[in-house]
């Protein structure tokens, strides 16, 4: 049986693992926090703004992870060209995450899939719940409204050759209130490729709900406290006890 996946998402600013707590940046975290043996997959995202750091620092992060973690590694943040794909793959990434460029130029998904295979192309979708109850897709770190409906865009990404969809609720991000499982379910039920859900995890039960209510194939956590020391193992034991088939 294919296991349900638990994925750690790490964000980097100019090569430094970066989190905010109560909106105050905190740079104390080191990679030693990550229990690289229990996690199923690692996502590293570069959130360095243009002109505010060197891309090389992120490449160093990617190659450090690739050398030391023997699990799949997905990398993204600011990926705009086939050359960006090649560079990240050369530094040891297995999958590449794209977002804003796919929205600007949807044919980018197909170009990448044709060259590297669909399994290499993860389309990240950031969605916000509108007052109407519909979900709209936002680009540029959630700053720019696109006018696109989330289900329409997820279907288009799949049709263009995406291998997986990484879905983030902007509203829930960092709130610890749990995933937006209505959003997760409508996207997951509309497409046939795996859906990785993200945004809002505060407790282990939220992972369970992501699978059961959100119909996700993988649950992601960006909360730094969720991958210290034995946390991943505890989370997986909790999932297993709740009837979710995971790799323990």
């Amino acid at each position: 049986m294919l296991k349900n996946r638990l994925i750690t998402v790490l964000t980097f600013n100019d090569g430094v693992l970066f989190r905010t707590r109560n909106f105050i940046p905190d740079y104390r975290y080191t990679l030693n926090f990550v229990d690289a043996w229990s996690i199923d997959e690692i996502v590293v995202l570069d959130i360095t703004r243009f002109g505010q750091g060197s891309k090389d620092h992120f490449f160093t992060v990617v190659s450090d992870f690739a050398r030391n973690c023997f699990v799949p590694l997905a990398a993204g943040g600011g990926v705009r060209t086939i050359n960006d794909f090649k560079r990240l793959l050369r530094f040891g990434a297995d999958k590449i995450i794209i977002n804003s460029e796919a929205l600007r130029r949807p044919e980018f998904i197909r170009e990448a899939a044709m060259q590297f295979g669909s399994q290499c192309v993860v389309v990240s979708i950031d969605a916000r719940r509108m007052p109407s109850g519909d979900y709209e897709v936002f680009s540029e770190f959630g700053n720019k409204a696109t006018g696109l409906d989330v289900v329409t865009w997820a279907r288009k990404a799949q049709a263009s050759g995406a291998g997986e969809i990484m879905l983030t609720s902007i509203d829930r991000d960092g709130t610890l209130e749990g995933y937006d499982n209505y959003l997760n379910r409508i996207v997951s039920e509309a497409i046939d490729i795996p859906v990785l859900v993200s945004g809002g995890v505060g407790k282990w039960q939220d992972f369970v709900d992501g699978f059961k209510l959100g119909k996700a194939q993988a649950v992601c956590t960006t909360n730094i406290y969720h991958f210290t020391e034995t946390s991943i193992r505890s989370a997986k034991q909790f999932l297993a006890h709740s009837g979710i088939d995971v790799r323990v």
């Binding site: 049986m1 294919l2 349900n4 199923d40 669909s118 399994q119 046939d192 490729i193 795996p194 194939q217």
Partner: peptide, 12 residues
Amino acid sequence: TNLRIPHVGWNG
């Protein structure tokens, strides 16, 4: 079946 393709993840 209605299994998702690609087959991604940990399997026995």
